[in-house]
Every structure is written in C-alpha cells, then in structure tokens.
Nucleic acid binder design. Structure first.
Lengths: 207, 207
DNA sequence: AGATGGATTGACCGATGGGTTAGGGATGGG
DNA sequence: CCCATCCCTAACCCATCGGTCAATCCATCT
C-alpha cells in the first residue's frame, strides 16, 4: 500500500513482522501467538512471513537477534577511579535500567525461559556469559569494597553478589509482571545499598 | 485393570488424571500440554478426561483446587512469646519451606501466572489475600522488632517487608527454574537475616 | 434375568495451527 | 519486449487440538 518510492519494501515488511512478533511474543507468549495473528498485526499475509522466515522458530530467533544485538551492554567501563561503592551502584543501576528500558524484550525472553522451552544453545550461552560477566564484576567490586572497609557486609563476595542478583531479579520480576502491587523500586534499591554499605537510607556512614 | 475390590474406580481414574495433569502442567506449561498427553500419562482414554472434567479449563481449575486446598498455611500461629526476630525467621522459613515442599505446585501456578493467562478471579483473590496476609504479618513483626530495637534496619516496615518478599521471590525463582547456577539458599537467607537484624552471619548480636 | 446407571472407550468432528504452492504484479537488465 | 528476480497473496494441505457421541462394560437393584 504505502510503497515509499520505488524501492522494494522487503525490509519494510520484514521489520513490521519483527515488530509485531516481538510485541505479541512479549505480551502473550510464544505458544499463545499464532502466525496468523502476527500476520494480522503486521498487516501482511501469513505467507509473506514464511517467505522471510522459514519457520516460526526462525522468526523467534530473528526476534531474539534483533533484541540482543543493539545491547552490547557496557558494564565493564573504565570507571576505575570511582570508589567501589559508586561502581557497585553503577552496576546495579545499569542492570535495573537495562531491564526497565527493554521491558518487553526482557519479558519476552523471560517468558520463554520460564516456560521451560528450549532456547538455541548459542543464545543461552550468550546470556549465561553476560550474566556471569556481570556477576564477576559485581563480586569483584564487592570484594574491593570489603577490602577498603567500605562494604559493611562481611559475607564472601560471591555469596553477596548472588544474593544481590537474586534480590534484583525478584524486584524486576515484580516490576515486569505484577502490574498490581508494584513495589517502589527506589526505596527497595536503597535497602539493597544499605545491606551492602551499612547505611539503611541515603549515603553510607559506616565508620 | 487393577480394580481394588468391587468399587467403581471413578475416583481412582480422576486422581490419576489430576496427577498427570499437575505433572505435565507444571513441567511443560498449560498450553504446551495437550489433553491427549494427559490421557497417555494417566493411562486412560481422552474421552474419560472429558467425562470427569467438562473442559481443559475445568481440569486446570480442579488441579488448582487440589493443590491449594491442603495448604491452609498456618502463618498466624500463637507464637506471641517468641521475640520478633524468631517470629520473622519462622515466617521466612515457612515461606521457603512451603515453596520447597510444593515446588511443582508453585511452578505450575507461577508459569500460568507469568504467561499472562487469565486465572479465575476467585483464585487470584485467594492467593492475593494469602500474600497480603503474609506481608501484613511480616510488616507487623518487623515493626515490633524495630520498636524493641532488635531490627537494625530503619526503613519503614512496609518497605522492608516488600523488599524481603521480593528478595525471597528472586531466590525461590532461582531455586525453581534455574537448575544450573543454583545459589545456596541458606547463606542467602543468612544475608537476609543480616539485613534485618544487623548481623551478617549466624546469630544476631546487635546490643 | 433384566433393567439401571456410573465408568470407560474408539471413532469421529470442526476449528485452528504451522507450513506450502502456484501464481500475480512490479522492477530492472539485456 | 522479454525474461528473471524480488515481494507478496489467496488458497490450499495436513497434523493436531479441544471436544462429542454412540456404544460398551460391569456392579448393583428389583
């Protein structure tokens, strides 16, 4: 219909399809979304989807690709000058912001993950590596903070990092999926910082 | 086949069906489980399932019923004598144990919930009430602890309870769904207690 | 023995799912 | 002008899904 100029509109339609797919997969889930629905939402014929993507699974992979590619998350900055507390706050804040800004991508991914469905090995690997990297960075900063007497928590850094991540995940799942009974993220993060740095509100004041 | 005596085996087959359904729904999800699969696993004909339960949805409800009915969770005990810290520990421990012991039921419920699928209002209401009750109890005990100077965390009790619950949920989701990269629940709980009571390991030693 | 009624089944049905096919326009190159 | 190639579609295909039905089995009641 809206052929912009004389160009072939392959990429146009491809993008429309991807957009519709990410939306539907994220809000309804993979299995609950039919190709006909995707076609309807993308305003193309079902056959065209199968022309762009051989199977539904391949569409899923393409969506995954499109979602993941722009976010080469830059956790590992050169912020060596900041003190560990600030670095930890940056790490946690980065995680939270990432989830916040990419809510639909994350729930898309999370749904599929929690549904027990198989994911392509390459992607789980990629995600796991990202997650491990993040955990390692967090662990390291916590260790630094402990060595410098800035972190009040005396547990092993790895254990602490695990806990922090689990708590974050709990908070973010609340954020993503529990539209009612939302908890206030900022005060919750304050608590997390309090756990790490020894103060329960605002700035640290350990010693 | 194994007709125990002369009794009609209606309840036998009904239970077999429910057993198969809870297993499949919990491990594969609602939509990913077909009635034929349930029939196969329960070793009955598909038609018999529809004789016991009018629709797949009704089977789902029956499973939900069977799962929820036995657990009139006894959070609100008469343990007024215990000091608030112990009561909080009991509350948290009870939550964790409940999820642990009913892992398949909980993931069954959680999957359906996270898939965005509708739940019967009565049940969401019931769960929400249970959850609210639990949160209220937790909030109350935390407030008591703060008043008696036993809880180091100085946030509003409600905020603290929210955070504790979110952290718990994160931990339990890790427990239920992330078979790889399991984190050690006990040390994580220790951290939570540390956050609440001011000690990072073992027993409290605030004052 | 015959009738009753719950329990159980194989065979069937319409709808829907993912996926295919044959072909129609547009564009561009020879 | 014709042919090839890229987009794109309506119509079709077949497996599977949730669900139905008529018939059977079997213990019990009369």
């Amino acid at each position: 219909m809206v052929t912009a100029g004389g160009q072939p509109q392959s990429q146009d339609s491809r993008d429309e399809i991807l957009k519709a797919a990410i939306h539907l997969f994220a809000t309804r889930g993979f299995h609950e979304t039919s190709m006909s629905e995707v076609a309807r939402e993308a305003k193309v014929s079902k056959a065209l989807i199968f022309w762009h993507f051989k199977t539904k699974e391949e569409l899923f992979l393409a969506v995954l690709n499109k979602l993941l590619e722009p976010y080469v998350i830059d956790f590992a900055e050169e912020s060596e000058k900041l003190d560990p507390r600030e670095q930890i706050k940056k790490l946690i804040g980065g995680y939270v912001n990432f989830v916040r800004e990419n809510a639909s991508s994350v729930s898309f991914f999370l749904r599929r993950f929690m549904s027990g469905e198989e994911m392509p090995e390459a992607f789980t690997e990629q995600i796991r590596r990202l997650y491990d990297l993040y955990k390692a960075l967090l662990t390291d900063r916590i260790r630094m903070g402990q060595e410098q007497g800035l972190c009040s928590c005396s547990n092993q850094p790895g254990v602490t990092a695990n806990f922090v991540l689990a708590a974050l995940n709990g908070l973010l799942i609340n954020l993503l999926f529990m539209s009612q009974a939302q908890i206030d993220l900022d005060s919750a993060l304050d608590m997390l910082y309090g756990l790490l740095f020894g103060a329960t509100t605002g700035d640290a004041s350990a010693h």
